[in-house]
Design a protein around this nucleic acid. Structure first.
Length: 207
DNA sequence: TATGCGATATTCT
DNA sequence: GAATATCGCATAG
């Protein structure tokens, strides 16, 4: 006799590097529906990735465009490594490096549907409503307690911050221009789960 | 719901 | 010294 399947009790499978597409745009599309997990001393924080943006090779809006600097060097690591940086005086943001080692490119993780550790996330965010806990890259980093310490770490290794397989299959994936940039603004390199209330941006970029 | 604006610190010019 | 892959609050409709 089979026991009923309880998603919450099933361990999340870690993604291996071989699971990740090398191509930046394919990786951005692939990550929709996958899980981001942070195992902290106080418990597990996790969420479904519902929004990403690709910053591929030769993209003038990308941090790696003008070559390697002390800040952006993690973007030149092999795929599956984290690039975390600080901006606007208040926000950390996390990218997953893509392409081959030595090539600068990455995928910005922009929003999560929170799964585990909701109370902890709310505490990190100052008691925001569920829908806004990790909606937007800065909020996501705050909720998941991701900061500069994680810059350059391997998200496919046995560390505290890692990528997991999908807990729930992704719905239809939409595609649009990217948010908050002033160059290459016509490129449709943003991906999101259609209709999800956890996706950032104006309504027309969520449908 | 939509738009506007100030805060904030690190990086690069 | 300028720019920035944003957020949260204020205000208006």
């Amino acid at each position: 006799m089979r026991l009923p399947r309880k998603t919450s009790a099933r361990p999340i499978r870690r993604l291996r590097r071989a699971d990740l597409p090398v191509d930046t745009i394919e990786l951005a599309r692939y990550l929709i529906g996958k899980t981001l997990v942070h195992d902290t001393a106080r418990g597990r924080l996790s969420g479904r990735i519902v929004e990403t943006e690709a910053y591929p090779v030769g993209d003038a809006a990308a941090h790696h465009f003008r070559g390697m600097t002390p800040r952006n060097r993690s973007l030149f690591l092999q795929r599956g490594f984290a690039y975390v940086y600080f901006t606007y005086g208040s926000c950390f943001m996390m990218n997953v490096a893509s392409e081959k080692p030595g090539v600068g490119a990455g995928v910005l993780i922009r929003a999560l549907e929170p799964l585990e550790g909701l109370e902890l996330m709310a505490r990190h965010r100052g008691a925001a409503r569920l829908r806004y806990l990790a909606r937007g890259p800065g909020r996501l980093a705050a909720a998941m307690r991701i900061d500069k310490r994680y810059d350059g770490i391997d998200l496919c290794a046995a560390g505290p911050l890692w990528l997991g397989a999908a807990v729930k299959a992704a719905g239809p994936v939409g595609c649009s221009v990217r948010i908050g940039i002033s160059r290459e603004t016509n490129r449709a390199w943003r991906f999101y789960e259609r209709g999800s209330g956890y996706v950032s941006g104006p309504k027309r970029l969520r449908a």
